[in-house]
């Protein structure tokens, strides 16, 4: 027994308790804004779980959750999220934070979007046939944009002024700037890129432009390979008081205003219009 202890103790010391990695599938906005670069090292230090962040669109992140190929999702595509939870592939969906979408476009504003509601703004883009760039990638932003077109009663399919980039928000904003086109962006990515692209915000503040992020754990009962404990730890971390405070302060120093607003305390029902 004593021999075993002497033999094993150096090994115990040499190898700190390493936890199984947590695969986080998330949207590009949380990575491109730099928020995750700030939060994830803290989580890793606190819990010992290494995190593998796969930054893709919300559509792909939810699809990965649906197949049990991710452990936890941080996404912003409410309808698709509720579908995932209804199917039983996702559990314990919790509100983390929000920001909002902004409609940006050329400073000359040929469609005249200023001081309109979101619905009117989208109708004016269509009526004036001004170029509009869609993400077209099943991301949360893309889902939101499709919802807004629908609300405005516009069919964008095959319209020459409507183009899809199929790329991330940063790329799409850059292309919109080059092509003097309108596009819908989450505020976080927009603020991070504002100086580089120089497209002004032409419409903001409409309640239908709210951009809500939820954390969802992939159901370990359905997918035995899912790291349920790690996923729960990460979700708990995101909604914890200390993390919520960090989210609140994130970006102020660099962009002059916060990029995300913490919401873990808000009653779930209030967030669903």
């Amino acid at each position: 027994m004593g021999l075993m202890l002497t033999l094993s103790s150096p090994f115990l010391r040499a190898a700190p308790p390493t936890q199984k990695a947590v695969i986080l599938a998330t949207t590009t906005s949380t990575q491109d804004s730099g928020l995750l670069d700030e939060l994830i090292p803290l989580f890793e230090k606190q819990t010992g779980y290494p995190v593998k962040t796969i930054a893709v669109g919300s559509g792909q992140a939810i699809a990965m959750g649906r197949r049990g190929e991710a452990d936890v999702l941080l996404v912003h595509s409410p309808e698709a999220e509720m579908g995932l939870v209804a199917d039983g592939a996702g559990v314990h969906r919790r509100l983390v934070m929000h920001n909002d979408f902004v409609l940006v476009g050329p400073a000359a504003d040929p469609a005249g979007l200023a001081k309109r509601t979101a619905t009117e703004a989208f109708q004016r883009i269509a009526a004036s046939q001004s170029p509009f760039l869609s993400r077209g990638d099943n991301s949360g932003t893309h889902a939101q944009e499709l919802k807004l077109w629908k609300a405005a009663g516009i069919v964008t399919e095959k319209q020459p002024w409507y183009q899809q980039t199929g790329q991330g928000m940063g790329q799409t904003l850059a292309i919109a700037a080059e092509k003097h086109a309108y596009t819908l962006s989450d505020r976080g990515t927009y603020l991070a890129l504002q100086k580089k692209i120089g497209l002004p915000i032409l419409h903001e503040g409409d309640p239908s432009l709210r951009n809500v992020y939820h954390v969802i754990e992939v159901n370990p009962a359905r997918f035995p390979k899912v790291n349920g404990a790690g996923a729960r730890a990460f979700a708990d971390f995101l909604v914890s008081k200390a993390t919520q405070q960090r989210i609140k302060e994130f970006g102020i120093a660099r962009y002059g205003s916060p990029l995300f607003f913490p919401d873990a305390d808000v009653l779930h029902a209030d967030m669903h219009r």
Partner: peptide, 9 residues
């Protein structure tokens, strides 16, 4: 690719 999409050209 990541830095480009972050606008850090």
């Amino acid at each position: 690719v990541m830095e480009t999409s972050r606008g850090n050209f």
